[in-house]
Design a protein around this nucleic acid. Structure first.
Length: 640
RNA sequence: GCCAGCGUAGCUCAGACGGCAGAGCAGCUGAUUCGUAAUCAGCGGGUCGGAGGUUCGAUUCCUCUCGCUGGCUCCA
């Protein structure tokens, strides 16, 4: 006798024979629009999912953001389908949906060319137009293995052997079948707005010893507008690329002669860095930090004691002289620890907050270097806090407050915060871990920032908080990190004498707020699109004399404005005003002061604001006052 | 480090069965003295990323190498 299963959909109740597709209920529902998925207990299910037990279903329609991942996953199958049609010899790997789209990995002896991608995309459209039903199949493992073996899909067979239970789920559309948990859209016709983006290498199962596959990336959306918006976003990101803007605006350069990942800050970049650092120092002093300077190398033995030689693989090879080996520093911590250990410490002097803009060197593999964002020599805005356990929470709160204060000054006010907790392998006492995790979480709660917990994702030496900032076009960048370190405290046997006259182990907090000057600068360039706010702009005001006879007046104003501490230039080239203005706009100089006969006669300038155009005449005094205010307030916008 | 793509003037890019290497912008010089996004003219500028090989001849074909790009991997 067939068992009947109770299925509740919206307000209606149905009874289905066990194993019949849930989609049966749809014929009875007066829904004007056909759903593409069901949702049950927070989980998305195929329309054809068999009735297995009592369920309450809701309907998910095309366009629903929850279904986007499914759309993209189905699009990845469509991609694999097209590839196997066009290149039957290709073996398919894995093809999930990812953050902004999807990819699929293929094993093929030749590389896919851009022409191949075009052909594949065309084939995908063809298959989509056929509107093939996407069927969910549950097969005994042996049968699935047999099917994929016959198709000579060895990678898939490997996956099934590895991951499949007694029964495995597969999805089929036309001649294409894939081992996959799903869920998927009911048919290929629903995949309408998609595009292939790029092809790159990827290792099978991420193992660099394994075979190298070719990964084709694509994206898909429910509407053409969303797809176009995303493609526009990619274009916009290209326009902001700091690797283009940096050299163009003469902020920094890199050179083959110097080596990869090594950056030279040009005067215009250096002045921005100076402003950032000055602000950073000022805020740190206000928060009770002291500064430290430390050398760039130290004896290798120091790094042995810290454990870096053992656990850290990004160190440059050591240098050797006078019978000793020296190590270029990848971190600042051991130096700060040495300073701490230079004498006995009392509980009365804790917390110690020691900050350093410390330049470190890391051997990053050549393939990962990327503009300013991933380099080999960089300056961390580092600090180490040594504190007692009763101070831990307050210290972390202080760090978070300082971090968000600094970031907000640059216009970063939207964050994603992660608390990473104890991993399986860890050093230190469980009791300390618990105390630290609790302090971190309490501090986060007090900060009012929404956060998520990455269970077990902490580093082996301590739990941490990471803060990612959201830039002007919504991209996330990791900057702030606050980490407890039980390892170094232990290895260097850090102690302080407590009120009880006994030795105690201090907590060691390692933190960087902006991350590194290089990386933060790269992010800033992209965030501002090169249009730095007035307080950071390398040239804040450019004065454009209309004709030669106005040059003396221009120089006079320049002197006057420089005396106020403003960064001012005069364009004395013998060009027309139009050309000078264009030049200044291209250079993204915030304020342009045009001076001619009129301005001389009433001691004024004609002001033009970058991007906003001519604002008319303004007296010299008013200009000075307003610029002063804008700089002092670190205003992100220029208003007159 | 691995896979793939790309390296031609400072920048953006043309180019060529393997046969003296081009444009625009920038730079320099001169003329123009001008009112809100490019005045005109002239000139200079290249081991065609580097090394080796094939060839009578290589920037072009081959090998190696360096750098960059997209990913992978790594990320104390």
């Amino acid at each position: 006798m067939d068992e009947l299963i109770k299925i509740k959909v919206e307000e209606s109740v149905f009874f289905l024979k066990k194993g019949t597709p849930l989609s049966e209920v749809l014929s009875e529902l007066p829904s004007p629009q056909k759903p593409i998925l069901f949702k049950s207990e927070g989980q998305l299910l195929d329309l054809s999912f068999p009735a297995d037990r009592e369920r309450e279903l809701s309907l998910v329609f095309a366009g629903d953001p929850q279904a986007l991942e499914v759309l993209r996953h189905s699009a990845s199958h469509l991609l694999a389908h097209a590839v196997t049609e066009l290149f039957p010899e290709v073996q398919v790997g894995m093809g999930p949906a990812v953050e902004n789209g999807y990819y699929y990995d293929f094993l093929r002896d030749r590389a896919f060319t851009p022409e191949d991608l075009e052909a594949i995309e065309k084939k995908m459209r063809e298959i989509a137009t056929q509107d093939l039903p996407i069927e969910r199949l549950v097969l005994p493992k042996e049968e699935a293995v047999k099917i994929f073996s016959e198709k000579n899909q060895k990678l898939k067979v490997e996956l099934i052997e590895e991951k499949g239970g007694a029964e495995v789920t597969c999805y089929r559309q036309g001649n294409f079948i894939d081992f996959c948990l799903g869920p998927h859209l009911p048919s290929t016709g629903l995949i309408k707005h998609f595009k292939l983006l790029s092809v790159s290498g990827a290792y099978w199962k991420g193992d660099e010893r394994g075979p190298q596959l070719q990964r084709i990336y694509g994206t898909a959306f429910f509407s053409e507008k969303e797809l176009q918006d995303y493609l526009n976003f990619l274009e916009e990101a290209k326009k902001r690329d700091h690797r283009r803007l940096g050299p163009e605006l003469e902020l920094f350069s890199t050179h083959e002669e110097l080596g990869g990942g090594l950056v030279i800050w040009h005067p215009k970049g250096a002045i921005i860095r100076h402003e950032i650092e000055a602000f950073w120092k000022e805020e740190h002093l206000k928060d009770g930090y002291d500064f430290i300077y430390s050398p760039h190398i130290a004896k290798l033995d120091l790094w042995k004691r810290s454990g870096h030689t053992e656990f850290y693989d990004a160190m440059f090879p050591p240098l050797e002289f006078e019978g000793f080996k020296y190590q270029l520093k990848p971190m600042n911590c051991p130096f700060h620890i040495m300073a701490y250990k230079s004498r006995q410490r009392s509980y009365r002097e804790l917390p110690l907050r020691w900050a350093e803009l410390g330049t470190v060197y890391r051997y990053e593999r050549s393939g990962v270097l990327h503009g300013l964002l991933r380099v080999r020599g960089f300056t961390q805005d580092d600090a180490h806090i040594f504190c007692r356990d009763d101070q831990l929470e307050a210290e972390i709160k202080g760090v978070i407050r300082l971090a968000t204060k600094l970031l907000a000054a640059f216009g970063f006010e939207s964050y994603q915060v992660y608390l990473a907790t104890r991993p399986e392998k860890y050093v230190g006492k469980l009791e300390d871990w618990n105390k630290a995790e609790q302090a971190l979480e309490e501090a986060l709660k007090a900060s009012g920032l929404p956060y998520q917990i990455d269970e077990g994702e902490g580093v082996f030496y301590g739990p941490k908080i990471d803060i990612k900032i959201k830039d002007a076009i919504g991209r996330l960048w990791q900057c702030t990190t606050v980490q407890l370190d039980f390892n170094l405290a232990e290895r260097f046997d850090l102690t302080y004498v407590g009120e009880d006259g006994h030795f105690h182990r201090p907590f060691l907090i390692h933190r960087a707020l902006l991350g590194s000057m290089e990386r933060f600068f790269g992010v800033l360039i992209e965030h501002y699109k090169g249009n730095f706010p007035l307080w950071l702009a390398p040239v804040q005001i450019i004065i454009l004399p209309i004709a030669d006879r106005h040059e003396a007046y221009a120089r006079e104003i320049q002197t006057r404005l420089r005396a106020e501490g403003f960064r001012v230039q005069v364009d004395d080239s013998r060009e027309k005003v139009n050309k000078k203005i264009r030049e200044a706009e291209v250079q993204k100089i915030p304020l342009i002061a045009v001076v001619g006969d009129k301005e001389i006669s009433n001691q004024s300038v004609s002001l033009r604001i970058h991007g906003l155009g001519d604002r008319g005449q303004i007296s010299l005094e008013a200009l000075i006052q307003q610029v002063k205010t804008l700089i002092q307030n670190k205003s992100l916008e220029i208003k007159f």
